[in-house]
Design a protein around this nucleic acid. Structure first.
Length: 821
RNA sequence: GCGGGCGUAGCCGAAUUGGUACAGGCGCACGGCUUAGGACCGUGUGGCGCAAGCCAUAAGGGUUCGAGUCCCUUCGCCCGCACCA
């Protein structure tokens, strides 16, 4: 159907035209240009799971608005996109439907690209990255080998978390609230040989450098700090009766005189060797029970302390006391030394345990220098300072001094040392699944673990595999893949069939974008040096720990390897809230999503974009309101009519009247506010400011204001201010106003300080802090003059009621307060 | 339990960081335009009061000439970690 250019706002008609124009102009096609300041704008790349909905688009609309704004501000903007394309859902779907993950993934990518396109969200598609493609994953393998060479990738037999539903192991970070982060199944423990990345070697740096990230949300930094979980303290050796010793970790060595029992984890090696004969059966029963119950117990809100006496005793090296060794699952094998000294007088958990098993309770650190008597509840120490009581030679001194003295004594005697423990564990990266990056390792009977030489990469993921209903990794049963030869001796060897956690793929994709078509290395250092770090990273807070911590780790390793010149990848981070509709987060599974195609058809892309920016503070969750969308559509229509409308202004009713001065000042105030708001990610108030300007323009026209040159200036600047938010509309208006280049590539308006200045201001007059009147005075009126003017007010006179003014508080151009007391 | 954050109209939310509380939008009311309209355009819209004015930012107290903003207490909500020694 042929359509003529209508005088009304018709998104259907204008939007495709301008999208084509941006592409033709290569809006985000960039190279390293040292003449301009660079700006690396990044949104978290998605897992292509199916069609996108408007909930997803909040992220992309924000990212697109920032990228467009920075272009107009004169930056050389890198604005890339890609696909986190390996992963379990596609493989699980393949098991059910028989459709190969590559087919479904590529189809999903095609759909998503279309949706991004029609919403006017534009990227540097010439740098597109797809993690499941050979040209990307060969470099993921390359980086794995580099980690291996650096001693940061290792294979280790350990009790790991196994998800019985997904048939794979899980990293510590992937257990959320005690269940699998993906499917919600309770994991079981399995003894397996697994590949790990040694992230713990970077624990201190990952913690310290959080301080550099002053443009990250506080919340995310705190979450990472807690996750890393640094504790300062000491390791102390307690001799065990008979032979050997028991090493414990404690943050409070000053409580050593309060030790009345020891506890070791059920997995502790001493369980094998030191349980006395008469206790064997009880201990065995307890261990069985904890193995079966561990995960369920952890989920219960009430952690009832359980445990069993081992029959063995340790000796307190500081007072020679004989201390029973217990086995209990409240002590974790994986933290510290897997053993603790029980100080029930000063620790709530030990107190609970001691009460249950009737063990002695002795307070040794008190909040006052005097003993408080038999403790009925532990004085919770944490990191608090106290005074030493009943502690031999240390009695009476401050606990902080005692900590140093006791560690010093232990070090002198060779039975302890100052140490630091982290909660962070090494990153378990192997997965027993097909749809991922093959770990480039070969097992040879003679040479053991042999890394595939880098020049033989990629280790190709075979396309032809049989998806099994038992959930076993298809690679295990693909002989053409498994059977290989040893890179060293050439004899028959077996390939590693585990693939890598997809979080490995996403830990370096932002580096690949800087030279996405590089064929000889993961990325070009010079280009990475030009673009890195990412200046603005925008995405969901659900990645606060996993992805963001892993990426920081990668960056530091690559920094140490000399491959990059900065050691933090993301300078500024913004985590946007989620969009809800009908009382639930917008999601495909909830059926409350809004398809971009429907949005575009009904309202046009720009209305959807502006609505998502206007919906509320971007860092907070927001409720989608269909009527709110109508409000934004009205606003865009109004802008259209004001800027290029055909309506005869003179026919309008005469309103209150707005002078040209007022209009121009409003324009410059709006330029100033919108600029500051975008810089501060306050898009909702930026849109509100644009609405205010449009409303004032409406008043101006209705009041009979002429559509002269000044009016056109206002229209042109409003158009440019709208461009990052409603780019298609802005482009069309720009064109109609006679712009010869693209609005998207025009310079951002600059507020004129002279026009921001008001010649008269409204000053608030208070009497004793209460608002009594407002007076219009020339800007810059001094206190004396303001006081005279204020005292002329009848309202002020009534409020003073004969009292005299003792003093005045004066805020220039804003307020004068007459104080009578 | 520990840590982070929040509480403002009927609803979503503004408030220059201690200085006119409620911008902007939704909703609602009235009007206009329409054959009609759940469309579009305009005007109004915290509560009480005829008014002067008074009362209002979860509740209570404090600091200050002045508090939504700072400090204490209480209540409620959200998020993260959760037996980490």
């Amino acid at each position: 159907m042929a359509r003529t250019v209508a005088p009304v706002y018709d998104p259907q008609l204008i939007e495709p035209k301008w999208r084509a124009a941006w592409k033709a102009a290569g809006l985000f096609t960039v190279s390293e240009d040292t003449a301009k300041p660079k700006f690396y704008n990044l949104v978290m790349f998605p897992y292509p799971s199916g069609p996108l909905h408007m909930g997803h688009f909040r992220n992309y609309v924000i990212g697109d608005a920032v990228a467009r704004y920075k272009v107009m501000r004169g930056f050389n903007v890198l604005n890339p996109f890609g696909w986190d394309a390996f992963g379990l859902p596609a493989e699980n779907a393949a098991i059910k439907s028989g459709i190969h993950p590559r087919i479904s993934t590529e189809a999903n990518i095609a759909v998503s690209k279309h949706e991004l396109d029609i919403m006017g969200v534009l990227y540097a598609w010439d740098r597109e990255v797809t993690t499941c493609n050979e040209d990307y994953y060969r470099w993921t393998q390359w980086l794995f080998l580099t980690f291996y060479e650096m001693g940061l990738a290792y294979k280790h037999r350990a009790a790991v978390n196994w998800c019985p539903k997904d048939n794979t192991v899980l990293a510590n970070e992937q257990i959320v609230n005690g269940v699998c982060w993906r499917c919600g199944t309770k994991p079981t423990k399995k003894e397996l040989e697994q590949w790990f990345f040694k992230i713990t070697a970077y624990a201190q740096r990952l913690l310290d450098d959080l301080a550099k990230l002053d443009r990250w949300p506080e919340r995310v930094r705190v979450m990472q700090a807690n996750w890393i979980g640094r504790s300062e303290g000491a390791e102390l050796d307690f001799p065990v009766e008979g032979d050997g010793s028991l090493k414990v970790f404690t943050t409070r060595p000053d409580t050593i005189f309060g030790v009345t029992f020891m506890v070791i984890a059920p997995e502790h090696p001493l369980v094998e060797t030191n349980v006395t004969t008469d206790r064997r059966s009880d201990v065995a029963a307890y261990i069985e029970k904890t193995k079966a119950e561990t995960e369920i117990e952890r989920l219960s809100t009430e952690h009832v302390k359980t445990g069993v006496f081992s029959g063995a005793y340790a000796i307190n090296p500081f007072n020679g006391e004989r201390i029973p060794i217990w086995i209990a699952d409240y002590v974790l094998a994986t933290y510290g030394t897997g053993a603790i000294m029980g100080v029930p007088g000063n620790d709530a958990r030990d107190f609970e345990f001691a009460k249950k098993f009737r063990l002695p309770i002795r307070e040794v650190v008190s909040s006052t220098p005097e003993p408080q008597g038999y403790p009925t509840a532990p004085m919770e120490l944490g990191l608090a300072e106290g005074y030493m009581i009943d502690s031999g030679p240390y009695t009476g001194i401050k606990s902080s001094e005692a900590i140093n003295a006791i560690i010093g004594e232990a070090e002198r005697r060779g039975i302890g040392r100052r140490t630091i423990t982290f909660r962070l564990r090494d990153w378990l990266i192997s997965r027993q699944r097909y749809w991922g990056v093959p770990i480039p390792i070969v097992y040879c009977a003679e040479h053991g673990i042999v890394p595939v030489p880098k020049d033989q990469l990629p280790v190709r993921l075979p396309a032809q595999v049989e998806f099994r209903s038992d959930g076993q990794n298809p690679l295990l049963h693909t002989d053409s893949f498994v059977k290989t030869s040893c890179p060293i001796c050439g004899k028959p060897a077996r390939r590693e069939t585990d693939t890598m956690d997809t979080f490995v793929d996403s830990s370096w994709y932002f580096l690949r974008y800087t030279s996405a078509r590089e064929t000889t290395q993961p990325f070009d250092k010079a280009k990475a040096d030009y673009w890195m770090p990412v200046d603005q990273y925008t995405g969901g807070v659900e990645h606060a720990i996993l992805h963001l911590l892993y990426s920081r780790f990668f960056m530091k390793v690559l920094f140490d390897a000399g491959m990059v010149s900065v050691d933090e990848p993301f300078k500024a981070l913004f985590t946007q809230g989620m969009i809800h509709r009908n009382g639930a987060v917008m999601a495909k599974s909830k059926g409350n999503g809004i398809a971009p195609d429907d949005m575009v058809e009904r309202y046009g892309a720009d209305t959807g974009r502006v609505y998502e920016l206007f919906i509320g503070p971007p860092e907070l969750d927001a409720e989608w309101n269909d009527r709110g969308v109508d409000g934004v559509a009205r606003f865009l229509n109004r802008v259209w009519r004001l800027v290029v409308g055909e309506e005869d202004a003179a026919a309008a009713t005469v309103g209150p009247g707005v002078t040209q001065d007022v209009l121009l000042r409003k324009l410059h105030e709006t330029i100033d506010k919108v600029t500051r708001d975008i810089d501060a990610f306050r898009f909702n108030t930026a849109v509100a400011a644009l609405m205010e300007l449009a409303n004032l323009m409406q008043d101006y026209v209705q009041g009979g204001g002429p559509r002269d040159e000044a009016w056109e200036t206002v229209g042109r600047d409003l158009t440019r201010l709208m461009a990052p938010f409603a780019p298609h509309l802005a482009e069309e208006l720009w064109h109609r106003l006679g712009g010869d280049s693209l609005c998207a590539m025009s310079p951002w308006p600059v507020a004129d300080p002279a026009l921001l200045h008001r010649s008269t201001v409204t000053m608030v007059v208070q009497v004793d802090g209460r608002l009594r009147d407002r007076i219009d005075v020339p800007a810059g009126t001094d206190e004396g003059e303001a006081r005279i003017r204020a005292l002329q007010s009848a309202n002020v006179e009534r409020a003073l009621d004969g009292r005299s003014v003792a003093r005045t508080v004066f805020v220039a151009d804003r307020l004068i307060n007459l104080v009578t007391r």
